[in-house]
Design a protein around this nucleic acid. Structure first.
Lengths: 200, 200
DNA sequence: TCGTCAATGTTGCCAATGGAAACATGCGAG
DNA sequence: CTCGCATGTTTCCATTGGCAACATTGACGA
């Protein structure tokens, strides 16, 4: 061992391991799917030992929960951005629903991770807060389009949310095949969604 | 080793291992959740070695796919039974939607397994057929309530399906907390669903 | 200045898992 | 009767998450 190691030697301390781990996890999630989100694989990606994440996240669940929190933040911003330039409250609600499905299609792995309670720890403050913020975006979009008393409001939010969420989940789980027919792919799915939104 | 083993000795060949494995998997799924569906655990439950399932199902995915196929069969029957004694086509559609969520609440693990493509092999004939049958039940319920041309029909089926499925998924993933409030539990969820169905 | 300590990483270990390979058993067709 | 093939078992391996013990580094106070 040289007293003064060559300049390309990895420093013992990474410096920004926490961020690097999250970034690696996100990249891996996008490219190889949720099943590839292994503690060891993520650590390998950043050149760290497989127990290094333990210092920043308690365990795999912790790491995934922080990643999901990031996802919910981005999700909320995406919904807001889509509704921003719409003229009416009703148009904003529809745009929000479209954006909901768009996000799921653009980030399928992340979306499934976010809405799959099993691998997450929802008591983590970062995750809880991010989820609450995203929920508020949805809730306000519905409230603006359909002002009503508390009970009907709950039902209207649940209805809009269920529709967007169900469509996204069925899409990601490849269940809509018989309904898309030859209109497969993301474009066909969004076209079907537009037809749905135009029904009432 | 005695030449004639005592009567309580396990025979080398189980006789109905395939059925026993599926039954054990279903029981385990209901009691301990999808994560407990381990090849080794299921085999242990029936007193077989952990490679025995390989002779009946190719691998864990195969076993889970057959289990999911059973689930879809039961699911289709449940939907049909719920709609059977309804007077109008519209009432039958609503009853089908209610039954959809009822099934998810009654068999959460099975439902999630059925609609989680990752752990299943949808090319298995048993699974493909069962999924198609369940889909037809849904499709016909919508068609009877809203006769229309092919394109609108697709949209109507997708809409009804998305609503029921999204509501069920959000419920199973504990996302509807803010909407259920003190009306938690299965009863509260079904009450919220009834309010939703009464909106249009 | 220097010594101590907390934060950050690493190595080594463990039990559990899915799967492959080689082998054992026994039913049933010829 | 016997031999082939379906059905099971044993053994082995790589991978995984997590724990414990140890190493490195920088910061802070006597």
């Amino acid at each position: 061992m040289a007293v003064s190691p060559p300049s390309d030697a990895k420093p013992y301390h990474h410096g920004a391991l926490r961020h690097a781990l999250l970034a690696a996890a996100e990249a891996r999630l996008a490219q190889a799917g949720p099943d590839s989100l292994t503690l060891r694989a993520i650590a390998r990606d950043v050149g760290a030992s497989h127990t290094a994440p333990r210092n920043h996240f308690d365990d795999l669940t912790g790491l995934l929960s922080e990643l999901a929190a990031m996802g919910f933040e981005r999700f909320a911003r995406h919904l807001l951005a889509a509704a921003a330039d719409q003229p009416t409250a009703m148009a904003r609600l529809n745009a929000t629903g479209r954006a909901y499905v768009e996000f799921a299609l653009a980030h399928p792995g992340l979306f499934q991770l976010m809405f799959r309670g099993e691998r997450l720890d929802v008591t983590r403050p970062a995750l809880r807060d991010a989820m609450a913020r995203a929920y508020l975006v949805l809730q306000e979009a519905v409230a603006a389009a359909h002002p009503s008393d508390a009970e009907e409001m709950s039902a209207r939010v649940a209805r809009a949310w269920s529709m967007a969420h169900g469509f996204a989940m069925l899409l990601l789980d490849d269940q809509l095949g018989p309904l898309l027919g030859d209109q497969a792919g993301a474009a066909g799915a969004m076209r079907l969604l537009d037809t749905i939104l135009a029904i009432d």
